[in-house]
Design a protein around this nucleic acid. Structure first.
Lengths: 211, 211
DNA sequence: CGTTCTTTTGACCGATTGGTCAAATCGGAA
DNA sequence: TTCCGATTTGACCAATCGGTCAAAAGAACG
């Protein structure tokens, strides 16, 4: 147990005790709550520290700055957020593959609304810190999938649609229920919008995509 | 030239000279730019003042506080924002009425992206200042239109869809192109996403709604 | 017990922010 | 011109913010 902490950033191995890992998780959990509610600039270290049950200097002992917490969150969550997209199977039945993707995304809006709002805040304000990932990882993933969709359409197994705009539609329709939750609930009569949303989106995409 | 204007605002009479009105418009214009980029908390009076070409105390001579500017903006823009909805004609041809509404909303995303982002910022962060309007004006408008749509469906002139979720779909799909503009452009190959978006959304809603 | 490393904290700092105020300046009517 | 209200501004203030630091408090181990 000599080299306790060499370089604790990404890239290198980051040897951490179980306590350190637990505290960092606490901090990221608190950061997720606060950043998703208030955006980067609206969040304060005091609130994050309070939410995590730590003092402000103690929080800064584990993460060197507010930015470090925010960027750690963005980095960690991007993979999770993109996962449903990667799970689409090019060998599957096209319409059902996309409908399943829509349902997975909708489930994420229901189960992880903070994550959705974190990205929404970031992107609405110009994506100042996640732009590289958008133009890199995301774009590559999207381009790959666009080709798959084009193949499906060429084979007559999917109604002709612009693949990119199809993906935008999936994102906006599903994430709307997390990001604009308060508006949805203010306008809707029911308490839980998701049962209705699931049926609606299934219908919508089925009609759009069935050849 | 005493009583220039009687009561153009809500509440009390607010007599204003032409100069006052012009400066206030400058300030609201600058405020729209800054608030839509940074959200309420991210915006600073200095930036708004700079954008408006005024000193900070001078700005505060026309509006008593940062909140006052922000709320004036929200209040003034809500009507504009809701206008395309009110323009739906219950006596019209159902599918075409809704398609026209979609196109109007998409045009607004293209022509007034700042306004769209202003609301997006507000709502993503819990709509702390516009909630009453959501539960009042907006909800009433939506409920009225929901009945019209239900009537259309009952008459077999529109495919059966949940009216509320239909409206959510219109909002999310159209506003996405304004609010998540940077993401759309980062992923897309074209420069201007709107021509493609218009075709796509027309197809999408036509297939969804045609009985 | 003492020693050494890790963790926690109170006190503090400089920068920024929203907002105030008194004084200066402007602009038009007489 | 003079006068008077409307407008503009530099100087300033209190609160808040992100972040530092030295010292205290634990923990681990012999």
């Amino acid at each position: 147990m000599v080299e306790k902490s060499a370089s604790l950033q990404e890239g290198d191995a980051a040897p951490q005790t179980r306590i350190q890992r637990a505290k960092r998780r606490q901090i990221l959990e608190a950061g997720l709550t606060v950043f998703s509610e208030a955006g980067f600039r609206g969040a304060t270290l005091d609130r994050i520290a309070g939410e995590a049950g730590l003092s402000k200097p103690n929080l800064l002992y584990y993460y060197p700055s507010k930015e470090a917490i925010y960027e750690a969150l963005l980095r960690d969550l991007l993979a999770t957020w993109l996962h449903p997209l990667q799970a689409i199977d090019p060998k599957g039945e096209p319409v059902e593959e996309i409908l399943a993707y829509v349902e997975r995304k909708l489930q994420m809006s229901r189960d992880f609304p903070r994550e959705s709002r974190l990205f929404a805040n970031e992107i609405v304000q110009g994506a100042p810190r996640i732009m590289p990932a958008l133009e890199g990882e995301l774009r590559d993933l999207v381009d790959t999938l666009a080709k798959v969709i084009k193949g499906w359409i060429a084979a007559g197994r999917l109604a002709p649609v612009d693949p990119h705009h199809l993906l935008f539609s999936v994102w906006s329709l599903t994430q709307h229920y997390a990001d604009f939750d308060v508006q949805v609930r203010a306008v809707l009569n029911e308490d839980d919008p998701f049962p209705g949303a699931e049926i609606h989106l299934d219908t919508l995409f089925r009609r759009l995509l069935t050849p």
